[in-house]
Nucleic acid binder design. Structure first.
Lengths: 192, 192
DNA sequence: TATTCATACTTGACAGTGTCTAGTACTAAA
DNA sequence: TTTAGTACTAGACACTGTCAAGTATGAATA
């Protein structure tokens, strides 16, 4: 079934928004600009997304779903590669990633569709850490370690994308190597 | 020497901006709003900050200077407390912290005053990690571990402030305890 | 086939925004 | 007393998000 015109518009609005987010930042996403790039009137996007926050919610939902996929795929290779997968997802989906965590523009909690995807992503991480810890670990211990893993991955991702990291390290020669090193340091503390 | 009227205005504009950033987010900071709250015309702030990005730069500069202070103070107590200090700084200076890392609104690299403070904060962290590693560690190893430490602290801070962490953990009973746990996990991988 | 009706838009308006330009007080030096 | 610079104010412009109202289109119904 070919996508109808409305679905095409919805998609091209999202694509334009994600591109702007990746190039400049989520703040630069403008209703009128994405409408212009999609070749429609400035009010057309409202029909699909309600308001500006609706666009951010849709991007977040999509982003969390993609993140879940990436995490699931990496899960079988242990904590290190899960951490790496998170960071690589962020770098490869910069536009999505930035929107997902700029919740002053759109609080994910208010959008059930996005929220369920966000929950799913975290569950995957929590399950993996719990499995690594074994049966003798308490739930609060597992949560603390999952939070720790998420913090490392998320911190590195945000520092690489938006932080003043590149300059400080004097031009990172091999980003992938750095990501691997950090991921290994991170997983060294799990099952301790 | 009492601060003159101009200095008072500059300060009250910054205070208003930081308050808005903490309550809603950096994006909600508006030239006209901060001018209104400072009781001046909508153009008065331009004289002190040039443009909107100038306000963000000033807040960043202030924030990085405060962060450096906090890190220096915690340094003598080891890597764990340095990590904790970073997160506590972020939580206690939410307004500053959000601005410091929302570089689509203001790229710190373009503001020498802010940049020098940012560099200083990272140097303190790098020095500490280098000292912990001892003489046999290479510079690139030290940088990787410093990046790792920064990632953990920064990741936890941003997840606590803007991320969907609170809900996922089912209402964190004791945030400070969680921060300590994560910080300990982080420093366990240093000098490995 | 003609009517109805929701969907998917367009057009126009309004308040609010950042910022440019131009003008006005005040203040301290010449 | 003039001058010059600092610290503002006032007005305008293009742009933004969004509300309200109108229009085309296409499918279901009578």
């Amino acid at each position: 079934m070919a996508p109808n015109k409305a679905e095409v518009l919805r998609r091209s609005v999202l694509d334009a928004a994600v591109a702007i987010s990746a190039e400049i930042g989520p703040d630069a996403i403008s209703m009128r600009e994405v409408a212009r790039e999609a070749g429609v009137s400035h009010q057309a996007p409202y029909h699909h997304f309600g308001d500006r926050a609706g666009i951010f919610a849709a991007i977040s939902e999509e982003g969390y779903a993609e993140l879940s996929k990436a995490l699931l795929h990496s899960r079988t290779h242990g904590a290190t590669s899960m951490c790496e997968a998170y960071v690589h997802f962020a770098l490869q989906h910069k536009g999505h990633f930035r929107v997902m965590f700029s919740n002053d523009l759109c609080n994910v909690e208010n959008y059930p569709g996005a929220l369920v995807q966000a929950d799913r992503a975290f569950s995957i991480l929590l399950d993996e850490v719990t499995a690594l810890l074994g049966n003798d670990a308490s739930l609060s211990e597992a949560k603390a370690q999952a939070t720790y893993m998420w913090s490392v991955a998320h911190g590195l991702a945000t520092l690489l994308i938006d932080g003043p990291l590149e300059k400080k390290l004097g031009g990172i020669t091999d980003v992938n190597a750095l990501i691997k090193q950090v991921a290994q340091l991170a997983s060294a503390s799990i099952h301790a």
